[in-house]
Design a binder for these strands. Structure first.
Lengths: 135, 135
DNA sequence: GCCACTATACCGACCATCGGTATATACAAA
DNA sequence: TTTGTATATACCGATGGTCGGTATAGTGGC
C-alpha cells in the first residue's frame, strides 16, 4: 500500500496539522491552537479529528513522537515531522500551486469572471510564490 | 465579496470538476476526460463520483444544466458553472495559494527541508519516498 | 458474437472528518 | 463550594464525499 503520497491530495485538517508541525515539534493541544491561528480561526480542529489524525499520520510515517513530558501528572506528547512528512507536505504545496494556477487560468479564459475580491492580492501572492520557488 | 463558500475547503475531485467546467459547458463524460487530462491522469473520476458530484453541485447552486442534447437516443447533459460556482472556484484558488505559501514558509524556517530545489525535484522526491515506504 | 468506447446512473463500502462526550488537573469566578 | 474555563488526551457514533463495481444502452471494430 502506497497511499502516503503517490499524488493523493490530503484533506485540509491533515494539511494544517502537518503545516503546524513544519516549524518544529508541538504537542496535540498546541497543534490545535496553531492550526486555528494559521487559518484565522477558519479551521478549528475537533479533538476527535486531531488525535485520530495524529495517530494515523504517525502510523503512516509522516509524524513521529518527539518526546513525552509529564506535566503535573498530565501527559504532553510532542510530535514532529519526519523526513517523509516534510516531503509529503512539500509535495502537497507543489500540487496545490499547480492546481490553483490551472483553475485560475481557466477562470480567466472563461471571461467575465476575475477571481473575486482577491484579484490584486492573488496576483501578488502568485508572483511572490513564483519568485520564491525560482530562487 | 466571496462569502458563498464560507471557507470550507473542497475535495480534489470536486475542485477538478469545477475547474474543468470553468472554460465552458461540458457534459458529464467530457468532464471525466478533461479532469483526467488536466491532472495528467492522476485524478481519474469514477462514474459514481462524477455523477454524484454533478448532482450535488447542481443542488448547491454551483452548477446548472446548460442544455440537453439527444444524440442518437443517448442523452448528453451539458453542465456549466453558475456565477456562484465561479466565485466558489475563485475562492478556492485564493485559499489554496494562501495555504500553500503558509506551509512553504514554515517548511523553510524548519531548516532541513527547502522548496528551493524546485517543484519537479520535490515531487520526484516525494514519490521516491512513497515507494520506499511501501516496502 | 464479443469487446471496447461513449454516456448516464445507482449501489454498498470505506474512511477522514464532525460533533459530542469522558477523563483529569489547575485556576478563576459566582 | 460549586461552577465554569482552560489545558490535555482519548473514545464514540454519525455524516458525507469518494471509491469500486455494476446496470443500461447505442456505436463501431475485430
Amino acid at each position: 500500500m502506497v497511499g502516503i503520497v503517490a499524488g493523493m491530495a490530503m484533506h485540509e485538517p491533515t494539511f494544517f496539522i502537518l503545516t503546524a508541525l513544519a516549524e518544529g515539534p508541538q504537542h496535540g493541544y498546541g497543534v490545535m491552537q496553531t492550526v486555528a491561528r494559521l487559518s484565522g480561526d477558519r479551521v478549528t480542529l475537533r479533538a476527535g479529528t486531531l488525535y485520530a489524525a495524529l495517530d494515523r499520520l504517525t502510523t503512516e510515517g509522516l509524524l513521529t513522537v518527539d518526546r513525552e513530558e509529564a506535566l503535573q501528572g498530565r501527559l504532553r506528547r510532542y510530535y514532529r515531522l519526519t523526513d517523509a512528512g516534510s516531503a509529503a507536505l512539500g509535495a502537497e504545496v507543489v500540487r496545490m500551486r499547480s492546481a490553483a494556477s490551472m483553475a485560475a487560468a481557466r477562470l480567466r479564459t472563461h471571461g467575465g469572471f476575475a477571481l473575486a475580491a482577491g484579484g490584486a492580492t492573488l496576483a501578488a501572492s502568485g508572483l511572490a510564490l513564483a519568485a520564491g520557488g525560482a530562487a
